[in-house]
Design a protein around this nucleic acid. Structure first.
Lengths: 377, 377
DNA sequence: AACGACACCGAAATCGTTATCGATGCCTCG
DNA sequence: CGAGGCATCGATAACGATTTCGGTGTCGTT
């Protein structure tokens, strides 16, 4: 026997019998062909069965030139027969990379986050990365738990949009922990400078400015703003843009035309009193959910959209598309934002030299539909 | 020196200096405090620094009784200082469990899948499991790729809802591969018996039967069905339920009152011709997207909802809630379905003895809103 | 004084994989 | 016939953590 000089042939034979016997026992015990087949095969199993060493099997499967064609064929055949897949955990341990990123989202009911996530997922998958998701429900404690879970699961990086409460409380310690673990962080949409990490966002101020400007161009002069309570930085920026556009056109900014709703739910009654007391000819809403509900209220008050009141919202989602009338919106291009976030993160993970922290601004577009007139009144 | 009899004190000292030196070099090279701190600390690092063995550090961190209080305090202090976290990959390799499940969804634009996913995610997180998501876009090849990615990433189990194309082509091999890998599989909503795995679903036939029955009770006699092209088993079942209810009430089932739309997009023109040519007093739609669009068309034709035409849809989503009029729907209780799927899967993963394959039926409810009259006509 | 119990700690195996470094024959060439 | 090259393969370390087992010194008991 030409092989087997380093380990006695007898040992090999015995080992093989032991392996076979174990499988047989497993088979008999469960009495199910499927479970029998479902054993996770390792290099060791293949090696024992073929009576060659683990290294040889590994090299054969990896197309190493130092393995004879004959051996390689045998190995490949057996591997295929047993549906062998390398144990990814072992690989990760060696490579000390998991090809795995985590995403923390405030929620998933908003169409915006759904599309961002889609962008992240598709880009990451295309580069062979797995994506785990957690939700913060705009709650700081849940955000912390989510980050802990992701860090403990060994992700290479995290993409996150800040929970509302976190921005409100300015509680950054759980996020700084991410950097302390040497895990890369990318924030999108709701970002902060208090935590080291890249930022991907839209220019909220400018987009609101442009949307308001468009309403003014269409002949509107009494423009309302429906926003949420102020702790979300993006909404503050949008309000700034709204005010800037008004001032530039010499329209007075009246605080009574701004309604800040509690984020959790929209109260139709407060909308009714607002629109009843405050005559307006246009409304800018910081999301589509508020917009469609406001449109219902305004319609119920006997006003026509867009002739009497024009509406512009944010988020190019299903509600905007299929509302009646369909809603003109600022498209935040969530898909692009997701793609960019994933790209930035994965580039960082893959690069050896540390890259600088940077900020990216995704352009927005105004999608005009039937809630705004197509010509100046 | 009481300790150090197994390894010479000199070796220890040298090792510690080497460790310190390496860290120093890293520090100088990157010139960033943060990166300096961001080094991933291992048990080895702590052990070198404290001049004790790796085993001792491990036992100290795990509250082993055989470690002196003194030593444990020192270890814990250093671990905290360096933000030590055990390397999860190494743990997984030992435990041969990843505490990680994968989810494959046809898409995320449908509110239904969003809620199911939320249910899965929250339940899994509560039990310390990570959740990775992939999308099939109703495409068999992408479904296969997604499963490959998940299997390669070493998930303990997979939750999936079949891609439309997969059901159409009856292509099951990539799903059987999951079982062959010894990975547990749970299917929800769109399920099949051709693949070994648990099933969580609603009783589509019965829910459509009940919805149709309700319309009949409200005095409707000419009830239309808007469905998608037939390869989705759930929609076939719903059609059966619809037909059954008609027959039981001695209403004739007329094929012309059933419109099967291509899944990709709803063509308003075909809806217009359908409603123009086919006088109906009620419509059952297999999802909310079709329903709201049909409502727009019917409204445009001058009919009133619900007085002239009543509408019932599926999926209790944002569109149903905020459409005008708001839509009566069959609530599939996506959240419950997600929770149940995750529960079944994780129970299987955690149990040592193989459990039998089983099917679970989640009850549906009819959420009545303004698209159906509240009393009999 | 000798022996055993006990407290405390370290070495080594293990999980599955890859990469490095030998090691073995065989063949060829001088 | 011996040396060296080549083709082919195996042993081993390493990744980071846990756990079993064994070892050391101390102290108390007889």
């Amino acid at each position: 026997m030409p092989r087997g000089y380093q380990q006695s042939p007898h040992t090999r034979l015995i080992n093989r019998f032991v392996a076979d016997f174990k499988r047989l026992m497993l088979y008999i015990r469960t009495d199910q062909i499927l479970v029998f087949l479902a054993k996770k095969y390792t290099l060791k199993d293949l090696a024992l069965e073929l009576n060659i060493s683990i290294s040889t099997v590994s090299k054969a499967l990896n197309n190493s030139p130092e393995i004879s064609e004959d051996t390689q064929k045998k190995v490949l055949a057996l591997a295929q027969l047993y549906h062998y897949r390398p144990n990814s955990t072992a690989l990760r341990l060696r490579e000390s990379r998991s090809n795995h990123i985590g995403v923390v989202l405030p929620d998933l009911v908003h169409h915006f986050f759904t599309t961002v996530f889609k962008g992240i997922e598709e880009y990451a998958n295309a580069r062979g990365f797995n994506v785990s998701v957690c939700f913060s429900d705009d709650n700081t404690q849940k955000e912390k738990d989510a980050i802990d879970l992701l860090l403990d699961s060994g992700v290479d990086g995290i993409i996150l949009s800040l929970a509302g409460q976190t921005q409100q409380l300015a509680a950054w310690s759980h996020l700084q922990e991410v950097a302390a673990q040497g895990t890369h962080l990318v924030m999108f949409d709701r970002v902060t400078d208090h935590v080291p990490g890249d930022q991907v966002m839209i220019d909220d101020m400018h987009s609101a400015y442009k949307a308001t400007q468009r309403l003014i161009d269409l002949g509107c002069t009494r423009i309302a703003l429906l926003t949420t309570e102020s702790y979300l930085s993006v909404n503050q920026d949008r309000q700034s843009g709204y005010i800037k556009a008004l001032k530039e056109s010499n329209l007075t900014y009246e605080a009574q035309r701004v309604l800040a709703l509690p984020k959790s739910e929209v109260d139709p009654a407060s909308l009714r009193t607002f629109f009843a007391e405050c005559p307006v000819d246009a409304v800018l809403c910081v999301n589509e959910l508020i917009a469609v509900q406001a449109m219902h209220v305004v319609t119920a008050l006997g006003k026509r959209i867009p002739e009497d009141v024009a509406f512009v919202g944010y988020n190019n989602g299903m509600l905007s598309m299929y509302s009646y009338p369909s809603l003109t919106v600022v498209d935040q291009q969530g898909y692009l934002m997701g793609e960019k976030s994933a790209e930035v993160l994965i580039d960082k993970i893959c690069s050896k030299t540390p890259l600088d922290i940077s900020k990216y601004v995704i352009p927005t577009t105004l999608v005009e539909r039937n809630s705004t007139p197509n010509t100046r009144k």
